[in-house]
């Protein structure tokens, strides 16, 4: 091997090899590399001594500190449970009326409720509960199933058209698709429904007498003769300006021709009775606070 030459810039010798013009200096490894190598390795070894670290067949070294992540979490959860126990008492025992009278409880309901709602309900109902097409506005306007807190609690608990055994059922039949009404009949009744919110039942009936007749025969059973809806079957009020799917002719046609069965999940199994109650109180409170 040829002897290395001296690099004029750094003053170090090369290793004497060359590849396609590339040479290497024989510079010793800088001391700092060894320093950091020992420091990090020492830290690692000490950490291994203190913490769970090495496998021993079916078990492992537990470490001198006896730190166990699982137990740390279990303890933290137990601690939080204990801290919140008094508040859970309040939630479980008091009824909706006494919440409203208890500012401390209301404060907690607003805070915890906002969080629960944001994590579980906002994806469909919107972060401010103002709804989206097909997902009702819960913060304001009429609700199909009623808006007393107890009713809200029931809706949230069992859901609508969900697989909960007590689920509420909302069935808006597919009048066109299933051949219950002909195309001209559907056109007539949707014209009548379309004008209800603007003109009221009487005026709209004058403008669309055929539609009004069909409505009385086919729709009134659920939506009521006055078209103001029936909370026991979840049939919406068709005379107000709150629409779940939309109040333009095209959307009403879609609704009546193809039917609607909105799906609201049941939350009993997932959130538990206490949180369902809290959410009902939260939604009810939200509604009272809307302008």
């Amino acid at each position: 091997m040829a002897l290395g030459e001296r690099d004029p810039v750094t003053g170090y010798l090369t290793t004497g090899h060359e590849w396609n013009g590339i040479k290497e200096l024989n510079t010793p490894v800088p001391r700092i590399v060894y320093v950091f190598l020992s420091l990090t390795t020492t830290f690692g070894l000490i950490y291994w001594l203190l913490m769970p670290a090495l496998p021993l067949g079916t078990t492992y070294t537990k470490g001198l500190l006896g730190y166990d992540e699982r137990r740390v979490v279990e303890r933290a959860v137990a601690h939080a449970e204990a801290e919140r126990a008094p508040w859970h008492e309040v939630l479980d025992r008091q009824d909706f009326a006494s919440f409203a009278a208890d500012p401390a409880a209301m404060q907690e309901i607003r805070e915890a409720g906002r969080l629960l709602f944001g994590q579980n309900c906002a994806a469909c109902h919107g972060i401010h509960a103002t709804g989206n097409t097909g997902f009702p506005n819960l913060a304001a306007g009429a609700l199909n199933w009623g808006d007393r807190p107890e009713v809200l609690q029931q809706t949230i608990r069992v859901g609508v058209n969900s697989d909960h055994p007590e689920s509420r059922t909302a069935q808006m039949p597919a009048f066109g698709q299933d051949g219950i009404l002909s195309r001209p009949e559907v056109d007539a009744v949707i014209a009548y429904v379309h004008d209800l919110s603007r003109d009221g039942t009487a005026v709209s009936a004058l403008a669309h007498p055929a539609g009004a007749r069909i409505f009385a025969a086919q729709c009134a059973a659920c939506h009521g003769a006055d078209a103001r809806g029936k909370a026991d079957v979840g049939a919406p009020n068709l005379t107000d300006t709150t629409w779940l799917y939309g109040g333009d002719l095209q959307t009403i046609f879609q609704t009546v021709w193809y039917g609607r069965q909105g799906h609201m999940p049941s939350w009993e199994a997932r959130l538990g009775a206490r949180n369902v109650k809290l959410l009902a109180a939260y939604v009810a409170d939200l509604r009272t606070r809307q302008p």
Binding site: E24, L25, N26, T27, V29
Partner: peptide, 24 residues
């Protein structure tokens, strides 16, 4: 390790460092 020294026209700073880094 090929293109940088060629383009810079400089020898690799330390052969030894490149070897311990490789095995490290």
């Amino acid at each position: 390790y090929y293109y940088l020294p060629i383009r810079a026209g400089r020898p690799i700073f330390s052969y030894r460092l490149s070897i311990i880094s490789f095995w490290g």
